[in-house]
């Protein structure tokens, strides 16, 4: 459901300070209702995703029994394994069994490793989420100031450099960036290991040691994207009357840029950051492969190549849940950033 923009005076309200927040507090019960409605609306979305994924997988050629049995299996052996896996049941019975188990919180077990799908996802969650968060932090720290600066000095050499860097960031494939970073920082200088992942529970140092290069690699694309986005949004806002008013009031340039302009330009920037985060959760398989990070992206690709149906189904349901949640959080955050937006 798109947010409604309500203009309280019929004119755009310059958001210069906490006015929006006091308005927002009064809206809390409505906000909660909206939150509840959105969460409930996610249920049919996920049900459709589940049905679609289930059918799509069954229509894709491929046979988990053949993968389990290996190259030398005879047709009779394959038949027996298929029967044991329940793959001979009619599709609607297989679907109902799966849904019934889901209702009880049971995502099933991997056809290959016999491990519960929830365990498999849980094992891969930390690397993926911690890498995504580190990437987003790096991205915001680098790209937003870059974009603001480029817009502020629109047409200057700074702008040109930012724009060129951003084209470069877009155009270089992540695996090239990854290999170059590995060659310089891991192999030539020996600062960090080449590959692998260390849990944050073992200390921030060991974690960063392995996560910094993949996070930098991944953020190269997002920095490019978000710097451009920030620049465009800022350019729009910097032409507005209230910016001129703020400058005329004698506010220093930093306050104009960051308190007045950037805050008004934040909605589209935040949308891109949010979607980017969701994309990172659902799989950045190339970066994960180059740095050998055991994340969800690799789990997904492995499961698809092996036709491990329960794992693929579980992963897609999980990912769609994450998407719904992140979109909801982004929508809710609009109200914080722009008091004109009400739910």
């Amino acid at each position: 459901m798109p947010p409604r923009i309500r203009y309280s005076t019929g004119l755009p309200v310059p958001t210069t300070d906490g006015i929006g927040h006091s308005n927002f507090e009064k809206q809390e019960p409505a906000m909660f209702g909206y939150f509840l409605r959105r969460v409930l609306a996610a249920v049919p979305v996920m049900a459709v995703v589940a049905l679609f994924v289930f059918l799509l997988l069954r229509l894709t050629p491929g046979d988990p029994a053949a993968i389990i049995a290996g190259d030398m299996a005879t047709p009779q052996q394959l038949e027996k394994i298929r029967t044991a896996l329940g793959l001979h049941e009619p599709i609607h019975i297989q679907f109902l069994t799966w849904v019934q188990r889901l209702m009880n919180g049971d995502f099933g077990v991997s056809l290959l490793s016999n491990k519960p799908v929830t365990t498999l996802i849980a094992q891969r969650l930390e690397p993926t989420i911690s890498l995504a968060i580190l990437t987003i932090i790096l991205t915001i720290l680098i790209s937003v100031p870059m974009g603001v600066l480029a817009a502020w000095r629109h047409g200057s050499w700074i702008d040109n450099i930012v724009m060129s860097a951003s084209v470069l960031g877009f155009s270089i494939p992540v695996f090239v960036t990854g290999y170059i970073l590995i060659q310089i920082f891991a192999l030539n200088l020996g600062f960090v290991p080449v590959q692998g992942f260390t849990s944050i529970s073992k200390g921030i140092g060991p974690f960063l040691e392995r996560a910094i290069l993949p996070a930098l690699t991944l953020s190269s694309i997002y920095i490019a994207l978000i710097a451009r986005m920030t620049r465009a949004a800022m350019l729009d806002v910097l032409g507005e009357d209230y910016v001129r008013t703020a400058r005329a009031k004698g506010l220093d340039e930093k306050a104009v840029l960051f308190r007045h302009a950037l805050r008004n330009a934040a909605v589209p920037i935040l949308t891109v950051i949010g979607t980017g985060f969701a994309l990172m959760i659902s799989g950045v398989v190339v970066t994960e492969s180059v740095f050998n990070i055991p994340g969800l992206g690799r789990l997904t690709v492995d499961a698809i190549l092996a036709r491990d149906y329960p794992v693929i189904q579980g992963l897609i349901l999980f990912t769609s849940g994450i998407y719904v949640l992140i979109n909801l959080l982004i929508d809710l955050s609009y109200a914080f950033l722009d008091p004109r937006i009400r739910y």
């Binding site: 290999y179 590995i182 891991a186 192999l187 020996g190 290991p193 080449v194 590959q195 692998g196 492969s289 180059v290 740095f291 050998n292 055991p294 690799r298």
Partner: peptide
């Protein structure tokens, strides 16, 4: 047994002694 799907990464890790 460390699963390393990317061959170049495996070679880099062998070079660095990981």
């Amino acid at each position: 047994w460390v699963n390393t799907p990317d061959a170049q990464t495996a070679i880099n890790a062998l070079t660095s002694g990981e």
